[in-house]
Nucleic acid binder design. Sequence first.
RNA 1: GGCCAGGUGGCAGAGUGGUUAUGCAGCGGCCUGCAAAGCCGUCUACGCCGGUUCGAUUCCGACCCUGGCCUCCA
Length: 464
Amino acid sequence: MTQTGLLQLYNTLKREKQVFIPQDPERVTLYACGPTVYNYAHIGNARPAVIFDLLYRVLSSIYPKVVYARNITDVDDKINAAAAEEGVPIDVISKRYSDAYHDDMAALGVGLPTVEPRATGHIPQMIDMIQRLVDSGHAYVTEGHVLFSVESFAEYGSLSRRDVNEMIAGARVEVSDFKHHPGDFVLWKPSQDPLPGWDSPWGWGRPGWHLECSVMSETHLGDTIDIHGGGQDLVFPHHENEIAQSVCAHGGQTFARYWMHNGFVTVNKRKMSKSLGNTLVVHELLKKHKGEVLRYLLLSAHYRQPLDWSEEALTRIQRTVDRIYGVLRDADVNYGPFETADQVPAPFMSALLDDLNTPDALAQLNSIARRLAKAGNREEAQLAAGELLAAGALIGLFQHDPQEWLAGDTEGLDDALIEQLIAERNSARVEKNFSRADEIRDQLQAMGITLEDVAGGTRWRRSD
RNA sequence: GGCCAGGUGGCAGAGUGGUUAUGCAGCGGCCUGCAAAGCCGUCUACGCCGGUUCGAUUCCGACCCUGGCCUCCA
């Protein structure tokens, strides 16, 4: 409870920013739709993970207890397909990619949620919710399927602001004969032999995707939760369906009080998609770029805006992050070491409290860095550095050792040789043999090493 | 067709009814043997047309354009 300002969030339900008031300040609940683990996470999957990780951090700095649930969908037709293709059991696929997801997210500074439920661990609860929906007339059984009846829920479509009947007129929905209404969706479907399945009152089968989130949310967070988040494309039908299931299963109670949706990551202004072949996998990006740079880039645009990904953007952010670490390093050499401040600087916090305005927050952070660079004495430096580190700790940036960060990946470099060449060059400089000195500098540059002559001597770093 | 975002300076990207966003790049200067890094200074803005207003990039209306959702999708 360190903060006085009010948190404002844009609520998709109302299409406006609202002051966030938890139903119980002693236990704030947040649910974000996690990955379906059939492949490596792409950068578009990473965005909501980073955004809601940040929201969790901000909430946790305000409220004593925040329960954050981020599920893992480990039963899904895409997983089945991947398993069939490789000829391995389903859990080999889901284990491999959920492990990879954890590694990738950790590299992006995304911590584990409070609870990370898996769909396969909640089959009895799913069956129970379906039964309740059937019993209350919101779902019906037909040909081994259990379907949710959208006509049984008057508010259906309110989140996405759609009229089911008008939508269906578009005829893009695959209409199955056994559906009472074309908009009805599957809660339970039958499984045949190679596919995963469980016993149920409706036969051997598996759950529909939308149901999982309703059930896991109910199990771990309760009937009514504070905030539910996810990507914009989940608004319809996924979240709309979640609302229908949960509200109807809970006798009309509100499901989520605030709905938050992040914009897409685009590549060359186009949405990432398999068909366009422009999917950028985090696992691959991390081979060339540091996770912190990816995180900074993901936070550099407001979460509701589209974020265009490019090599140019990556280079730009890399320089920005390097510069700030450089400021920290220089200040450290001159006035350090520094203590992290107890309080997050007010302008920075205000920016985050304003619907997670991360571009503004990062602008504040940059301003603090400039103040640090200009600090003329230890007090000023400690003040600025303390704020910078505190702000960084909250947003998940600048917690590395500056020296180590700037040294970069020293793998494959011969430190001794570099030091020897630097010594040689400095001798040449003392002798005013500048052509020889420049020759050595060029030689190092060719090795990817950039030299900086500073007061204390010559230091080096990896070239950009 | 229905619904929803958005068009800001070279680029990225916030924000605001009248006063510096911030970063990257550029330009000039300081520093340096020269660079690099850093610091100081500095040029490019608010899609188009109307309206409201003393004053609009910022509010209202029309228009043009871009992107997304409506089907698995972060």
